[in-house]
Design a protein around this nucleic acid. Sequence first.
DNA 1: CCTACCGATCGGTAGG
DNA 2: CCTACCGATCGGTAGG
Lengths: 228, 228
Amino acid sequence: MARPRSAGYDEQREQILAAAAALFALRGYTATTMNGVAAACGVSKPTLYHYVRDKHDLLAQIARGHVQRLEALVSEVDAAGLAPEARLRELISRFMAAYAGARNEHRVLTEDVRFLEPAARSEVLDGQRRVVDAFASTIGGLRPDLEADALAKPLAMLVFGMMNWTFTWWRSDGAVDSSALAAMVQQLLTGGLPAVQAARGSAGAALRRNAAVDAGVPDVGRRTVPER
Amino acid sequence: MARPRSAGYDEQREQILAAAAALFALRGYTATTMNGVAAACGVSKPTLYHYVRDKHDLLAQIARGHVQRLEALVSEVDAAGLAPEARLRELISRFMAAYAGARNEHRVLTEDVRFLEPAARSEVLDGQRRVVDAFASTIGGLRPDLEADALAKPLAMLVFGMMNWTFTWWRSDGAVDSSALAAMVQQLLTGGLPAVQAARGSAGAALRRNAAVDAGVPDVGRRTVPER
DNA sequence: CCTACCGATCGGTAGG
DNA sequence: CCTACCGATCGGTAGG
């Protein structure tokens, strides 16, 4: 019968992942050394290698853990059964809070995914895609015409841009707190979404444009910038 | 008298910077080798070192060149003397086009600035700050109350988030072209800006809140999320 | 302009 | 025999 793991195994593992995420976030994956990770954790390198197979596995554990937490967040919001607008607000609010509480892991996820080995990278990218799809389908619930034009996903990516970029410059000790930023993103999106127009050039827009022309309806979809 | 530079010096230098930017964007600064840069350019390593002092100088030339082009863009828009809303649309449209045409340099600027040596890093960050300020002051022209609350700059950073993040996922051969994305950013911002509320907690908001209370005016500034 | 090569430091693992 | 480590050092490769 196998000997059970030490009582502090999971705590030690979590501490190693957190310290490595801090170094990866600061210097990037490649410039971070396993010696540096071990030193930051106060353990020897052989001990570090007791918790991770190699450097790629260390990165994979950090990235997988973070994306799994994000997917769990989506599941929690799903379970609440909210209407699209409330659901979108809840997603933004929870994601901004999650990012603020896991800045290092978040930066690693967004910048160092390219260094993952193919299997781990696919796993992480699949998780990210499911998360993006949750945002895109909620936006599509508010604007089915944009979803028909395949614009719900690009729009979701703009929202992720606002959220992701925030944590490259935002400081927790600064003048603006993360919930105020979440509110700004929500307000900008909720207020701006009605102003977003179906783009010309997409398959859905072209079909509906032709239909509109056939029916003698003015073709407002051709304007990409609203006139005032 | 010093020997003049070869006729093709500047062209060769530009080619080297472009090839290096492509490698930095793909693998990151640290994981890119000077041997790899030389091979990608089809020149020997000593030739490469004729154009750059060292690896840090190569990165500095790429980052400085890109941020200088962005500053030139701001100057051009300034010269047009547009009203705030038109100016903001023009800035967004030109920046998205510039990013689309210099994706590698843009990714290097946003991800590898941390590897610059202090003097070059300061220079680049100063340029980026001036560019952000141009967006923030234009937003402040549209919403002086947000600027008074020091929220124009965070809002400008949300706009940069949308623009910067776009070029981590957008493909020029995909279904959505970059001008359509620029239009979406413009519409989201122009449509959403009126919905953004002054945040509680900032110095300006606190001052005006007190003034409002003193005058017996309802304090709408305390709500960070609009009720519906 | 190239081959050859340096001081150093990397990720990962040996024996005990 | 197992695990959980340590001090020391391996083979390869980086920037220059």
